[in-house]
Simulated assay, not measured.
Amino acid sequence: MNYFKLPLEEWTNTFINDWFLPNMSGFFDGISNVFQSFIDMITKLLIAVPPEIIAIILIILAWRISGKGLALFTLVGCLYMGSVGMWEAAMQTVGIMIVSTIVSVFIGVPLGILSETSKGVDKVIRPILDFMQTLPIFVYLIPSILLFGLGGVPAVIATFVFAAPPAVRMTSLGIKQVPAEVVEASKAFGSTTTQLLFKVQLPLAMPAIMAGVNQTIMLSLSMAVVSSMIGAPGLGSSVLRGIATVNVGLGLTAGLAIVVLAIILDRITQSLGQKTKF
């Protein structure tokens, strides 16, 4: 039997090549330049600072926020990354992760607030989040390369699509879980909508918001290897080189460095979330 074939592929390529890119390339070039400058600034700063100073700062943060156990692990992890020659690559990965997390949180948290405070916004945002979380990673790498070229910028954009939904959902959930009695009492004492949000709901929702930030950071790190396929520097590119050359040692060395970073950042952000409980 002959079935009707929807020419979606041809329509998409025609739209992209004949209208979208010729008319919008300048706009996306501007965005790319801004993001690239931000990434370069953070990465150069992380690489310029002596590794010993960054290690000491991380150890102190781990000790003060999470305890002696994580501080000891952080010390061993930093020594490991330095001893195997992965420190600079780790800082490049952290730089991209920082930019991705900042973008995801600064967009995700306000969207989460809007999603909870407006049913109309929630109806629009929810299917978009479902689409972002279920669309295969490699599918949105293609438009990222097309619009932003190769390097750190498309990695940030692709990571944002992958990592922003938890920030939105956890912010909305945190506000939703604020006890109705507390909200009613606040209104009874004359709180405005803005005061209710910033002085009651957001502080009480902070543990859930920090859980969303934690998940955003973990998802950003999990994209390190995938992002290296579109030219992102860092530990992921070392893993990719190990795969391409069947160099098990290189892949293991860089992979363990990613694990070390993930554990340190995960435990620190988890402890921060627990400390924000009221």
Rank of each mutant, 00 (worst) to 15 (best):
G174F: 08
G152F: 02
S100E: 04
V168R: 02
E184I: 03
V94C: 10
S100R: 00
A188W: 00
L202H: 09
I113R: 00
T193M: 12
L150E: 14
F198C: 11
S191I: 00
V153I: 08
G112W: 01
P143G: 11
G112R: 00
A155T: 03
I125T: 11
K176Y: 13
Q133C: 06
T93C: 06
G152L: 04
M97V: 11
I175L: 11
R126E: 15
L129R: 09
P165I: 06
A163K: 01
A167V: 04
V121F: 14
T117G: 11
T171R: 01
E184W: 00
G108S: 08
V121K: 07
A164K: 01
S104E: 03
V139Y: 13
V178W: 06
Y140W: 15
P143K: 06
V103R: 00
T193Y: 09
F148N: 07
I142C: 12
G151R: 01
E184G: 07
V99Y: 01
K187A: 08
V99H: 03
A163R: 01
G112S: 05
F106V: 14
P136F: 03
G95Q: 13
T171H: 03
I96A: 12
S186I: 02
E184T: 05
V200L: 04
F138A: 15
G108D: 08
K187T: 02
F131A: 14
L202R: 05
L173F: 13
S118A: 07
I113V: 10
P179G: 04
I107F: 12
Q177T: 06
P143F: 09
L173M: 15
I157C: 07
V156E: 08
A180S: 14
I137N: 14
T194V: 07
L141Y: 05
L114W: 07
I137P: 07
D122V: 00
V103C: 06
G174T: 10
K176R: 15
V124S: 11
E184F: 05
V103Y: 00
Q177E: 15
P165F: 07
P179E: 14
A155L: 05
T117D: 15
P166I: 01
V168E: 08
P127M: 12
D130T: 10
P179S: 11
Q177K: 09
G174N: 10
V105K: 00
G112E: 02
Q195R: 10
S118L: 04
S172F: 03
K199M: 09
V153S: 04
Q133M: 09
L202V: 11
S172A: 13
V183N: 07
K176Q: 15
K176N: 15
V156T: 12
L114D: 09
L135A: 10
V156F: 04
P166E: 06
